[in-house]
């Protein structure tokens, strides 16, 4: 196998995720797109772990950090959904294009 096939797959998923973050109006869908991005990163990390490994498989830094990413992603979803819920409760809508309180 080539390293690059995994990296390019990851790049494709990443960019699809970016597209989703930018194009979707629904807050929950934006969070899902962020999950796509994080998964793309994980594939990258594990791919490099597989490249970097030596004969005894002792260096597993990539795997370890993929696990950390999964943990952080779980935390992120929890907080993200709580925020979406709060916005929904306050505005009866989770349409991100209506939220422009930061307008300068």
């Amino acid at each position: 196998m080539l390293l690059n096939q995994f990296l390019l797959l990851s790049a494709v998923l990443f960019c699809i995720g970016v597209y989703g973050v930018l194009a979707r109006k629904n807050g929950v869908l934006v969070l899902m797109s962020i999950e796509l991005i994080l998964n793309a990163v994980n594939i990258n990390l594990v791919a490099f772990a597989a490249l970097n490994t030596d004969a005894l498989n002792t260096d597993v830094s990539g795997d370890v950090f993929a696990l950390f990413t999964i943990a952080v992603a779980a935390a992120e979803v929890g907080i993200g959904l709580a925020i979406v819920l709060l916005i929904y409760r306050n505005r009866r809508s989770i349409d991100l294009s209506e939220i422009d309180l930061m307008k300068g």
Binding site: M1, L3, N4
Partner: peptide, 28 residues
């Protein structure tokens, strides 16, 4: 807008990846 940004990002990344790791093999 989103599609343009996505394609732009992908092209930059793809060029960088192919250029850096050309045909590195994974041996598992």
């Amino acid at each position: 807008m989103a599609a343009v940004v996505g394609v732009l990002l992908f092209s930059v990344m793809a060029i960088a990846l192919i250029d850096s790791f050309e045909a590195d093999r994974l041996v598992i």
